[in-house]
Design a protein around this nucleic acid. Structure first.
Lengths: 225, 225
DNA sequence: TTCGACCACTGGTTCGACCACTTGGTTCAG
DNA sequence: CTGAACCAAGTGGTCGAACCAGTGGTCGAA
């Protein structure tokens, strides 16, 4: 079966027989090697491609892909984003998760991280004055915060949550006075980080998320596109 | 391209044109309908299959799959499990996440959940007396706890973490006196849940995880297989 | 009615051919 | 010698036809 081929190729990639950056044998060669048809090889390649283990380049070959945690959760995001009934649960998760992230970030944050966060807040303030959307800044803020934990899995999970919550953000950030309140929450978090105060950071983030959750609860559910 | 076909089919599934439980048109029919070859349809099917949106049954047809969050993160787990250097970071994540899970679980736990938890602890105690491995019970404990949050995303994330941490569990649970201490932590959590005491539940879980982290820190890193 | 053979579907696989793209060498005009 | 244009070989992308292998219904004989 093609599934078995996929498994065998996966093992060969992960054990280093096929190093990243170097093209795999051609589809035709692999077909002959495994004693199956080229179609089966292609089926296997499609599977490995969608889980982010391979990338094919027309005319050049098929290449093993470096581990990229972000890409691994991307399919999750793409599918879940169609299921709006999960949005509440995702916010729930974020409410459980982000205060802890802020707490850890406070113990590991670097001056560079703080500078980045300040820059983001500055940009956010400028956009607020002209009434432009601050979704980009809000998302970036949470990303840098996750990065400050020095934990790749945290960064990845946060990226997923950010993607999935983009929809609800569009909603909350449109509301009167909401963007202003959002930046207050962020500023409180940054202040806590600057003092490396883990408890205060977690508390500030908790309040921030609670505010958002509160707003969402008082908002009609988003219309389907 | 096959990728475009996959997108179009995905939309048709998610908007209900192809309801779950009812077979899609045959590959040959879809090929003609979209004006592409059967191979391209099959390529698209493989992609949609690996992200858990389709399931094919030989001789019967191809069926849209009900949303199953577990299946969505399964590829993540399968790949990450090959990268042992992420284990520390994963424990880190768990330490951020599980106390919050326990906190929320305390507010939503049902009597059935509590009964299940008690049953698991009983089994764990029995196995302890005979010195058998309690990995299954430990894993089940965290699963039921996640279930008690009534949040499918939490259950899914916890399942992933559980899978990924199975390796390190084998290590810690082998140590002298460790299984006994593990059940003490679990009992404290259940006691807090029984009183619907969110703060105590979170605190108990925090202590429990800290103990595990402590043990892992004093343990040589696992050998690569 | 019951059972078995058959048939019409389904996906699974194979093969051969051609197209599209990339690369690197070759050729030829300057 | 230089540079541009060309060409050929290799790659993945696509196509079509054929056959294999399961599934479920139909039909007919017992």
């Amino acid at each position: 079966m093609a599934e078995e081929i996929a498994d065998r190729i996966r093992v060969l990639i992960l054990d280093g027989t096929f190093p990243a950056g170097q093209a795999l044998p051609a589809e035709r060669a692999l077909a002959e090697w495994f004693g199956v048809s080229r179609g089966s090889i292609r089926d296997a390649f499609r599977t490995l491609e969608t889980i982010g283990l391979l990338v094919t380049r027309h005319g050049q070959g098929t290449f093993p892909q470096e581990l990229d945690v972000d890409r691994l959760v991307a399919p999750l995001a793409s599918v879940l984003s169609y299921h709006y009934e999960l949005q509440d649960e995702l916010l729930d998760v974020r409410r459980m998760f982000e205060p802890a992230v802020a707490r850890v970030a406070a113990t590991r944050v670097t001056d560079e991280d703080l500078a980045d966060l300040e820059r983001i807040l500055d940009a956010q303030r400028r956009k607020l004055k002209t009434g432009r959307s601050v979704i980009v800044e809000v998302t970036a803020f949470h990303h840098v915060l996750a990065r400050a934990t020095r934990n790749r899995v945290v960064v990845s999970l946060m990226a997923t949550l950010n993607d999935l919550l983009a929809e609800s953000r569009k909603l909350t950030l449109k509301q009167k006075g909401r963007p202003g309140r959002s930046i207050l929450g962020h500023e409180a978090v940054v202040a806590a980080l600057r003092h490396r105060d883990a408890g205060a950071a977690a508390e500030a983030m908790r309040e921030h998320i609670d505010q958002i959750a509160d707003l969402l609860q008082h908002t009609s559910t988003p219309v389907r596109p």
